[in-house]
């Protein structure tokens, strides 16, 4: 399956991916309205790597694990893997207990701003190309299939 991969050497840490992630998961699909009127949590974490003389960054989101701990820990049946292998969260079933946050080894599931559910990457399934990939100004986030990802190893 296709997953999102980040490239540290190219990431500027600008945070645009987070902005567009929020917009993609908003009702308005508008970056300003999503920010000002809709309280949406980005499903991306920007990691900062401190080096002796510099700082580098990369964007991290759900890895859609082959054997996802979050699904096994989910008490309500909200977290599931769809037919395409994408790990998704049914908002209407999620109670925000954070059992998934407790077990995600990447720290890639976050409590939503309203506290009622969790935010996690769904590869913008309802949006098209992942918004973070689509809007990264420096091609630091790419959507790659298994073969392309294998080449990175």
């Amino acid at each position: 399956m296709k997953k999102i991969y980040a490239f540290e050497s190219k990431c500027l840490g600008c945070g645009l991916c987070e902005v567009y992630c929020r917009a993609a998961h908003s009702k308005s699909k508008d970056i300003i309205k999503a920010h000002k009127r809709e309280n949406i949590t980005s499903a991306i974490v920007i990691e900062e790597i401190l080096q002796p003389k510099a700082v580098s960054y990369f964007a991290l989101q759900c890895r859609h694990c082959s054997d996802p701990k979050c699904i096994k820990a989910c008490i309500s049946g909200a977290m599931y893997k769809d037919e395409d292998g994408i790990v998704r969260n049914k908002k209407e079933k999620c109670v925000g207990c954070l059992s998934c946050v407790l077990v995600c080894p990447f720290g890639a599931v976050r409590k939503s701003a309203d506290g009622k559910t969790v935010a996690k990457c769904d590869l913008c399934i309802d949006y098209g190309l992942p918004a973070c990939v689509d809007n990264c100004p420096n091609e630091a986030i790419k959507l790659l299939d298994d073969k392309e990802a294998e080449a990175l190893k």
């Binding site: 946050v101 407790l102 077990v103 995600c104 720290g107």
Partner: peptide, 13 residues
């Protein structure tokens, strides 16, 4: 203070 707690859990695991 729970954000990213799973990373701690994985260190134990």
């Amino acid at each position: 203070d729970f954000q990213r707690a799973g990373i701690y859990t994985d260190l134990i695991n």
